[in-house]
Structure formats: C-alpha cells, structure tokens
Nucleic acid binder design. Structure first.
Lengths: 260, 260
DNA sequence: GATCGTTGTTTCTTTAAGTATATAACGCTA
DNA sequence: TAGCGTTATATACTTAAAGAAACAACGATC
C-alpha cells in the first residue's frame, strides 16, 4: 500500500503549474523554442503552445517571452521570474514528497489507524533546528540518548525517552533534526570551558537584539547554521557581548528534542 | 496562487482509493446497491461496477460484498474493513490538506522562496503535545507569552520569542499545540500548591514505567489528554507514586514550545 | 413458475483530448 | 526581395475514455 499525490499550482482556480508543464518549461529553457521543446518532452506543438499560453495568461508576471520572426525565426525564453517559479515548484514538490512518505510510513492500513502519528504538518516555535545525522543511539528502559552529527561536524546529544526513539523510528545513520528553544541556551565567553554532559557549540556573534528584560544573541556555527539564545539583559551586559565576539553556546542534552 | 493536490492510495502501483471512489463507497454504504449508488454519485453503472471490481481485486481483504439475486435482487454492502479504509482515507486526507494549506501559507510566489519554512513534514520526539486554542498573546521586544486553552479548559502558558510568534503567525483564537519534553515536567502530590508562573495540570496517574535511573509517569488530564513526565527513581520512591494517585504536573512556561 | 431488482457482461455511441498537418504572419538575414 | 525557422492559428484525424442501452444470470419471494 502506498500513497501517491501530485502537486498542482493554481492561479484563479485554473491549473498554472504541474509536473508536465515544468518539464516543458525546462525544455524551453534548454532549447530556446517551443517547437524544439515540444519534440524533446515529447508532446505535440499545439499542446505545448496551449500550455505556455495558459501559463502566461494566468500568471501575473510573464513566465516566458515569445518572439515571432527575427533571427532564427524567433524563439521563446523563460524569464527570470519563470526560472524562480520552476525552482519554487521543485522545493514545494520536495517538501510534499517528504510529507507523503511520512504519512505513508505512519499509516497502517490493516489495523486501520494512523498509529503514533500526531501531527506531521506542524511548524514549531523553536528557533534552533539543526539538521544532522544520527551518529549513535542508546536506549535504556525509559531514557534514550541520541547523538547527532551536524553538517559542520559538530555533535549534539539529545536525551529523549525510549518511546520517542521508537515512535520516530530512529536508526543510526538516518537524517534527523536537533530542536531546542533559544531560552534553553546559555552563552559563555570562554571557549575552552567544559561542563558535564553539555552540548557546546562555538562561533561568532552575528546579531544581538535587545529588549526590555531579555536579549537575543545569534551566533553562527559552522558554515550556514546559526544558534539563537535568549538571555537576561543583565547577563548580556556582564559578559559585555558584542557582535563579532566569539562565544560558546551551551545546551543541556535534556533540553534537546529530536525531529525526523 | 494556491496549491492543489489530490491523494491516491495505491496498491501494487494501481490506484485503489481516490476521492471519487470514496464517494462511491459511501453511496453504496448508504443505498445498499451499486446501481443506486451510481445514480446518487452520479456516474454510470459501468464505471461504478468497474471501480468496485478494481477495488476488490487490488485489496488484500474484500472491501465490499456483492450478492447477485436474492431478496430485492441482491445488493452490495461495504465490509467493516472497507469502512475502516474509508475512515482512514479521511484521516489521511485531512492531514494532507493541513499540510497543503501550510505549504501554501509559507510559499511566497512573488519573492520566490519558502520564507521561514524550515520543515513542515516533521515529527518530533516530545511526548507531550496538547491541542488548544490561543487565548491571549503578548509580545515584547524579544520575548512573547502565549496562553493556550486546552479542550479540557485547562490553560498552558508558553514563553517563546517574538520572532517565533511572528513566524508561526499566531493570533488570538487560532488553534495551536503546546509542546514540551517529558523530562521538563515535575510531578507533585499536593494539588493545591501554587508556584510562580508555572503551568500546573492535575489528574490521576494511569501508568508508571520504571527504568534503571528514571521513571516515566503518565497522568490523565481532562478527558483524553495525557501528560508524561520522566523523573528520577529516587524522586518517585520518595513521593510513593502509585497508579491511581492524583498528582499535579508542573511545567515551566519557558520549557513550553508552540506548534501550529 | 413468474416476478423482481440486482449483479455481471456486451456492444454501440458519444465525447473529449490529444495528434498530425497545413498555413499565415513575422522579422531578421543575406 | 527571397529565404529561413519560428510563433500563431485553424482544421481534420486519431485515439482513449466515459456513457448509454440492452440483456443474460441470479436467487429470494410471492
């Protein structure tokens, strides 16, 4: 039993973009004309022309520019907006497929329920969501310990319950996300301090936002990952934190959740 | 700009269940025969019969039972398995629609990126995910305070960053989920103790799982909601917790995340 | 045994969608 | 001005799917 689902982008309740049209647009991008693209896909010129016409009519901004006559008889090119749209569609499609896979995993068609599935389609408030790979996995009777390796090779340990490990279907080597609230992050200026069983990630401060009582400090870890911490104004002043300072972000492993 | 997506359940790479077939099955459930159902949907008898035949052939267990001849000329009934399948499909469809809505909300087609969307299709390890409604909402320069009212009328306060409030698009009255780790829940036996700014939820213990060092305590809050707490074995013994005991679960509002 | 309303099957018709083809218009090039 | 390859448009053809209608088989019921 599997689930299948196609994604269609509508404008004005009319289909604007779908799998086949994306392929056509890409062929146009590649060949520079509708007629050649139609042969490449393959589809009839009429179908291709109608698709393109429909796309351009429905879209607020032109997706392709068509020229009749001229050098080489004319031609058709995809506008920058069109290229963006194609890219966008792929992103959406990827997210969608991810969701469908998850949905299918969780659905047990024989028993007839969605099992442990609570909600898949949910965004959570936690600022810190770091993508990684499960490096090691230990479970006791109640607790479990998961170590993730981030793209930046940094490691993050999460203490979660054994039930959670099972529900998420965690396995060594699989992709997962480390999640924790910015309020459970401590900021230290000493780089080489070591505390028991804590996750410590170092990097330069790239932004400081000051509020009435709290201050949000954002530091870059590795290439393009950031960690946000919310600390009290007093603590921030005491440490004399400035943008550019190198700091260490500390997170208790019991504050870290895991997402898949 | 909107997104549209249909959901199809496949078996053996053949379409087994889709929107139209579900409607047909429901009409059969209601009218007791293929011919009447076909009229009700509406579709031709042939199409209806072929759909039903295909469904029954593809499914491992029979979805409908057909009888030719007999009282009233025969008839067709949906099996209990078939009914389960229909129910299942609705659940999947609901989750799917929820996802599509979220995807659409986050996609900005003019700017051409997925904005703040990190990952929508994610399950998280947190055991405690309580559905509620946003009762009140206050944001400062950095921090924000969200009060959720659960179905059981209990209230849960979450301290999250202002950015998170904005990213999630939180508004008073909208549905949201309070999320917190079971390890950030404290268990108390006194019902009427009051601690500063803490969330306290009371109910009877329905399950205790003992491990090497930790104990998982699950209490029922309201009708069908539960809260899981992981505490040390020592603490559990000291409180002499037993299944059936009425306890209060305490959660710091800074440990609570919000999901939408 | 006749009746009834259904399932199961066949055949023909209709319809929609796509394909193929032909051709005008176009604007640069030589 | 003729040639080129394209867009743009119309027309005819092909094919696949859906629908309509007709009818045999069936088995309880009267």
């Amino acid at each position: 039993m599997e689930l299948q689902s196609s994604l269609t982008l509508l404008s004005d309740n009319q289909p604007l973009l779908l799998e086949k049209r994306i392929r056509l647009l890409e062929a146009i991008e590649q060949h520079g004309s509708i007629s050649k693209a139609a042969k490449a896909v393959p589809m009839s010129y009429k179908a291709a022309w109608e698709a393109i016409d429909s796309i351009n009519n429905l879209s607020s901004k032109p997706v392709v520019e068509r020229e009749t006559g001229g050098k080489g008889g004319g031609g058709t090119v995809v506008t920058p907006y069109g290229k963006k749209l194609i890219e966008m569609f792929y992103l959406l499609k990827k997210q969608h497929q991810l969701f469908i896979d998850k949905l299918c995993e969780n659905a047990d068609f024989d028993s007839g329920d969605l099992g442990n599935l609570k909600r898949i389609a949910m965004q959570i408030s936690a600022r810190n969501q770091l993508q990684g790979r499960v490096l090691s996995l230990h479970t006791g009777e109640v607790s479990g310990r998961v170590v993730l390796e981030l793209k930046s090779k940094e490691r993050i340990t999460a203490n979660i319950t054994k039930d959670a490990v099972e529900n998420l279907g965690l396995r060594e080597g699989m992709d997962a996300v480390a999640i924790f609230k910015s309020s459970s992050v401590l900021v230290a200026k000493e780089e080489n301090l070591r505390l028991s069983a804590q996750n410590s990630l170092s990097g330069p401060i790239i932004q400081i936002t000051t509020g009435e009582v709290n201050v949000e400090v954002i530091a870059r870890i590795g290439q393009d990952e950031t960690i946000a911490a919310v600390i009290t104004k007093g603590a921030c002043e005491e440490l004399d934190l400035q943008v550019g300072n190198r700091v260490t972000m500390l997170v208790k492993s019991s504050s870290v959740m895991v997402g898949v």
